[in-house]
Design a protein around this nucleic acid. Structure first.
Lengths: 225, 225
DNA sequence: TGTCAAAAGTTGTATAACAGATAATGGAGG
DNA sequence: CCTCCATTATCTGTTATACAACTTTTGACA
């Protein structure tokens, strides 16, 4: 590791402190000055990390008092699934199944020519990014978003944006997800997306929904086999 | 309004800039120094806001170049409404169809005894409110929320809350919603809800989903015949 | 022992400065 | 006029310092 900005290291470092020191909810963590001393960086960078941790709901800062643990960072992902609460990853796929499959159907039925153009442009971008740089997490999302946009339903789009925002936040607080995929998975991903786009192009609603469900099921398998 | 720390206001202010200036994905937003000038605060506070925005995946900072829009913040429905064909009311029902029907199915399959109790309590509240005061918009929502809660899927719940928040805001800003319903409609609403709750009780997933779809289709008809 | 004001510690905010990277500018040469 | 390239301007990343606002601890005094 040891990559990225100093604030990133501080972010990871503080989470590690919470875990290794076994700080319970409500416990106070070292002061910003002390953390800066520990990590050998400036207080400014420690603050940036703490601001992000607070935004993630993991810590809470009280002026004059200190920063406190608000929620333990969820380490268990995948195998350790609690009985009551599904993991964010699993949960997000459940929602995406219903939301995006229906979005694909509506997009196929209602898409305008401009929206179809936007979808195909997003597809081109994804193709380019996948073969060159690899993961292309962002381009992937943008294609899905273009499809949701083509539903002409503002509530769909709003929910889509919200979901991705939330899930990204939760995942960032947990373990990393951006592992590199094998080359054959990249080819499969491209084909799956192309099937969706093609179905929308020929305005085949059922086909688009089906292709989207298939794509998501494969994606889930790729993420947690 | 105008609450909280300066960084919070900057966070909201930058999102507002993205929305009102209609900055597309990839567009550059004003420099940190310029933003500090605009908001009348220090660059330090602007940076804290930008760090959070970046952590939320909304912006992306490139050293030497500036900060750029990476993903549009979850939309306030009002701003892009004119671009969209569907009304928020119509659109929300489309989303509720897929989201809540599936939630009812999952709730039927996974609900714990405690969650079943919560659902039945919400049902009792709704029944009481409907026969006495009339509309019972809030009790209705709480029953639906209890069902979503029983899916044990935090992402489902998050999307449900978000959708209702957004749609409520739009409707409050717009025209009527709380018109009085005829008495036979009240009886029908009660029966529909009871069918959903009963299906969840006997853990009939398909039945719950079907009952939910039927209820929502009736509700839409009642709202806009 | 109990009260309470002073002190010490901590977060919130501002300012200045510089390093490291990118974008814009403006000539020199075709 | 256009292209190439070095210079300059601009922007983010990071550090240091200082003070304001608030909370907790300390310690003296009653």
């Amino acid at each position: 590791m040891q990559e990225g900005r100093l604030a990133d290291r501080a972010y990871a470092g503080i989470i590690e402190i919470i875990n290794t020191e076994d700080l319970e909810i409500g416990n106070r963590l070292p002061s910003e000055a002390r953390l800066a001393e520990i990590f050998g960086i400036s207080r400014t960078m420690v603050r940036e990390a703490l601001v992000r941790l607070a935004a993630d709901g993991i810590t809470e800062a009280r002026r004059g008092a200190g920063s406190f643990v608000k929620r333990r960072p969820s380490m268990r992902l995948g195998s350790h699934m609690q009985m009551m609460d599904l993991s964010a990853t699993m949960g997000s796929y459940e929602v995406r199944f219903v939301l995006e499959a229906e979005a694909a159907r509506l997009a196929a039925m209602r898409r305008s020519v401009e929206q179809m153009g936007a979808i195909q442009r997003a597809m081109t971008n994804l193709r380019k990014a996948l073969v060159s740089t690899g993961p292309a997490h962002n381009e992937d999302m943008l294609l899905h978003r273009a499809i949701v946009l083509a539903t002409a339903n503002p509530v769909f789009l709003s929910c889509f944006d919200h979901m991705h925002e939330e899930v990204d936040r939760i995942m960032r607080a947990g373990v990393d997800i951006s592992r590199s995929r094998p080359p054959e998975a990249i080819g499969a991903m491209l084909t799956e997306h192309e099937m969706i786009v093609e179905a929308i192009k020929v305005q085949d609603g059922d086909g688009a929904a089906l292709a989207m469900r298939w794509h998501l099921s494969q994606g889930r398998k790729r993420l947690m086999p």
